[in-house]
Design a protein around this nucleic acid. Structure first.
Lengths: 226, 226
DNA sequence: CAAAGATTCAAACAAGTGTTTAAATCATTC
DNA sequence: GAATGATTTAAACACTTGTTTGAATCTTTG
């Protein structure tokens, strides 16, 4: 019985963990992020992980199932952080009998992303991966990502609607799309610019705090127009 | 002598135009935009164009050279429109002894994009293509795109710096990055959303004017923060 | 018409893809 | 220590990729 079949049958993982699965997940995360899903071969992944070519199909079932695990492994815990913070924003505003504030709402979504990025090793690669997920031409990556992001996105959207009752839902939706575009663009490009592309007097690599200090006011202003 | 060699030698194109080149360019634009560069095979392109497989290598030299032509064919005229409008903004502000306005500067860059999109058939596919160009993991597409967009981007950046002298260049640069992220996100996703992803009460398909009416104020507010 | 050159065509090329298989090895349990 | 099941391994599978080739066809020119 293969590992993939065991997982599908929801059998509890064996107590003696082989770390081959982990090494493959790490290698896949890194390569998917840097080269893209379709430009990364299973041979490249297993080579990087020091595993046999057949290991991916044995442990995960297929390349696509591997991608799902790569995304779910980090996105599910991250979304729990986001959900906790968004619910706290909603609860606090309710207790204080006021509306949620746009800034704290956006921060509740974005800050866990950035903290996550700096905390776990390899998470920066993961951020590039999900930063690109929405713009992947291929259905594979996009659909898997949307599956895992959908509910938290709706919670963010509804909280913003509560924060901005005078603005119609449609306008808020599209402004949120603009914001997601800006955020994902930064997530996938920061640290990837080539020096030659910077005008003089521009620091190529602001740290996370400096980036947040520029990004959040930009997004808040855009959301609150009028 | 192949067509590609003739082009390389800068020989004048034969007066008897085969439209095979055009059909290949159109098919490639469509497929690159919808499936991505690496997910599109030459067989798919030549099949769509009703041409022989070898036609791409004969007329363009390679798949990569074809991509360059696909991008250059539309981006060079588009950038000329943008340059003309940006230079007019600069000239008018100079004559009136004032600074350029952020809104007219951004419009000078964005409006030609949108008008272009609606004018020529196939241009909507092209917009998806360049909307994704910056986020392609692979160097191929990104480098070709950057080559053709660099100078107009600098002109836009410098004009914004003139418009916002009280804000440091670095901040303006990153806000412009946020704006480019928002713009490219919209360019590549509009019309591609799945209905099921829209919260209720949100119109899935605003037209170009409605989108501009939401996007421009959003970007202007973000650029002008503080 | 005939020569010349541009274009198309079918076929093959070498290389790379994800997946499967069956034997070999390892780990655990009785 | 033998048996059982999980894991690893090398090899092959069927398929797709971009590119090249040399002959066939079309177009233009002399």
């Amino acid at each position: 019985m293969s590992q993939a079949e065991m997982d599908q049958a929801e059998v509890v993982k064996s107590d003696t963990r082989t770390d081959t699965k982990q090494r493959i997940l790490d290698a896949a995360e890194k390569l998917f992020a840097r080269e893209g899903f379709h430009n990364t071969s299973l041979r490249a992944i297993t080579g990087e992980a020091g595993a046999n070519l057949a290991a991916v199909n044995y442990h995960f079932g297929s390349k696509e199932a591997l991608l799902d695990k790569v995304i779910a492994r980090r996105l599910l815990p991250l979304n729990e952080l986001r959900r906790t913070r968004l619910l706290r924003v909603r609860e606090e505003s309710r207790l204080e009998n006021r509306r949620p504030r746009v800034e704290e709402t956006l921060r509740a979504f974005i800050e866990p992303t950035m903290e996550f990025r700096d905390s776990e090793p390899g998470a920066d690669d993961f951020m590039s991966l999900i930063g690109r997920a929405l713009s992947e031409p291929d259905d594979t990556v996009r659909k898997i990502f949307i599956t895992h992001i959908k509910s938290i996105f709706y919670l963010l959207f509804e909280t913003l609607c509560d924060a901005l009752p005078e603005i119609c839902r449609e306008t808020i939706f599209w402004r949120l799309q603009f914001s997601m575009g800006a955020l994902s663009h930064i997530l996938r490009t920061v640290g990837k610019f080539e020096l030659s592309h910077f005008p003089e007097g521009v620091n190529p690599l602001p740290d996370t705090d400096a980036m947040m200090a520029m990004l959040v006011p930009y997004l808040v202003q855009g959301m609150e127009v009028r």
